[in-house]
Design a protein around this nucleic acid. Structure first.
Length: 469
RNA sequence: GGCGCCAUCGUCUAGCGGCCAAGGACGCGGCCCUUUCAAGGCCGAAAUCACGGGUCCGAAUCCCGUUGGCGCCA
């Protein structure tokens, strides 16, 4: 069987890391079986859906290297892949169910339904639709229509137990009589998301539906609908949500939630993807390696990915581990690659800085956890420090200036001169180094000092020292 | 409220009945290296496997219940 999976984001916001996570697992699963991965846009909510969001979601996924074989932008044999362009199809399926009496018109008003619910609550019985309109006569229907009522369409839910096997969670057992006849089309005729998704999954021949756990309770309905429509049911797998450290859903108040925001922070796409893959899944131990590793790419993951190995519990998104991983990826880059990334990331740098940047990169590479940190680490190369972390010690600076004035401008000569001067003045060399560091960079921590002095040049350094004495 | 899902170090996880008085990674602490900070190396603290019952010669692993978290429906 040819595996076909899909990600179906609603374009109501920028690409959320949780969506990227789900997309990634769909992709890994499909590609592990040489299957097809599809990108569908579920834009059934016209009020909240925006083209801008759709574009950014597509861009984000591409950036992460998650490529789809069929999708809203590139089409494919089962298109269109945008729900707003499929409305007519949903109508056809609704009519089919209506014709077969597997669905019916319900004329109940919201007020009537609310009243019904209230009564059920008072009697402490499960709240569900009573089925009041399930067997209306022709006359009754006409009477309602003459009143001007617009009916919704409800699915006639078979009263039975539904058992299905979730590839991650195992057997799930639900009693369909508990949720009753649910709505599949609004009074304006438009299909509800769950119905639309069911139809799309059928038409797009989706074999494995891998999605968020919020759909777990909706799956029995999809199963019933698929059955009623006369199609084979796909396999299901439900992934846990990603949570913030306070165990609530990742949201704006926890900081960055969208892929774009992480990229803007200077997280490399490969690092983000790698980190996301370790959330809920782990690379099987390689017996040839002494230690298992958290560091691996999509290609390797595709080889060993199995959905059964996915963790059931909900992971917490830990930005510290992401930052560590990003540092690993930065250090794995060649200096040249890193330079290009830095140019892309920091628009204030231009090619005229090229010679300088070439020299700086080896000094800061192993100190950076994000691309954005380049500037906080190396800013002093581009402009003189405006602020100083602490007041400077004049006596030390004078000794340091004298030592540097007279010596050749290379690492070893400077070191010797500074150490000798420290000895003569009965100062600790390390203190002398520190004062020079602060005078030159403004900070107590930073790249190696003597290498930095070499790069900035004697004239500039002496001026920086003089200005502080 | 009804139903469903989940539960191993602070965090991500390994573990799928004996190899586990629980392994790795991030983070944290210490030491080494060192002109600072990193990077790197070494060492360490950190989970009575949520709790309580079973099943079994034997349970983190199977079953039941409780608690807590989350979700769906309303």
């Amino acid at each position: 069987m040819n595996v076909r999976t899909r990600i179906a984001p609603s374009p109501t916001g920028y690409l959320h890391v949780g969506t990227a996570h789900t997309a990634l697992f769909n992709y890994l699963f499909a590609k592990h079986s040489s299957g097809v991965f599809i990108l569908r846009i579920d834009d059934t909510d016209p009020l909240r859906s925006k083209k801008e969001y759709e574009d950014s979601i597509l861009r984000g996924l591409k950036l992460l290297g998650i490529k789809w074989d069929e999708g809203a932008d590139i089409g494919g044999p089962y298109g269109p892949y945008r729900q707003s362009e499929r409305i007519g199809r949903y109508r056809q399926y609704i009519d089919q169910l209506l014709k077969q009496d597997k669905a019916y018109y319900c004329f109940c008003t919201p007020e009537e339904l609310e009243k019904e619910r209230k009564e059920q609550k008072e009697k402490k019985i499960p709240t569900k639709y009573s089925g009041k309109c399930s067997h209306l006569t022709k006359q009754q229907k006409e009477a309602f229509q003459n009143e001007g009522r617009k009916p919704v369409v409800r699915f006639r839910t078979p009263q039975k137990r539904i058992v299905f096997r979730d590839m991650i969670r195992g057997d799930i057992d639900v009693d369909a009589s508990l949720f009753g006849d649910f709505v599949i089309a609004r009074s304006d005729g438009s299909a509800l998301l769950n119905f639309a998704a069911t139809v799309d999954d059928i038409e797009m021949k989706i074999t494995h539906v891998i999605r968020g756990e919020d759909f777990l309770n909706l799956t029995p309905r999809q199963l019933l609908l698929t059955e009623a429509l006369g199609h084979p049911i796909p396999q299901f797998a439900h992934l846990s949500f990603l949570y913030a450290p306070d165990r609530t859903k990742l949201s704006k108040r926890h900081g960055a939630t969208s892929v774009t925001e992480y990229i803007e922070m200077g997280i490399l796409p490969e690092a983000l993807v790698n980190y996301l893959m370790t959330l809920g899944w782990s690379m099987p131990k390689d017996t040839s390696q002494a230690k298992p590793t958290d560091l691996f790419g999509v290609k390797e993951a595709v080889l060993s990915f199995t959905i059964e190995a996915v963790q059931k519990s909900a992971p917490i998104f830990d930005i510290e581990k992401l930052r560590w991983m990003n540092g690993e990826y930065i250090r794995a880059k060649s200096d040249k690659e890193l330079k290009e990334l830095i140019y892309q990331h920091l628009s204030i740098l231009t090619r005229e800085h090229d010679a300088l940047v070439d020299k700086i990169i080896p000094l800061v590479k192993e100190r950076m956890k994000t691309l954005a940190e380049f500037m906080s680490l190396a800013g002093f190369f581009f402009e003189r420090p405006k602020a100083f972390e602490r007041p400077l010690k004049d006596a030390h600076l004078k000794v340091g200036r004298v030592a540097l004035e007279s010596c050749a401008w290379n690492h070893d000569a400077m070191e010797k001169s500074i150490r000798d001067a420290a000895d003569t003045a009965k100062l600790k060399a390390r203190d002398l180094f520190m004062e020079i560091r602060i005078a030159v960079t403004g900070k107590t921590v930073g790249p190696p000092l003597l290498e930095s002095l070499e790069i900035l040049g004697k004239e500039e350094i002496l001026e920086r020292l003089n200005s502080k004495i």
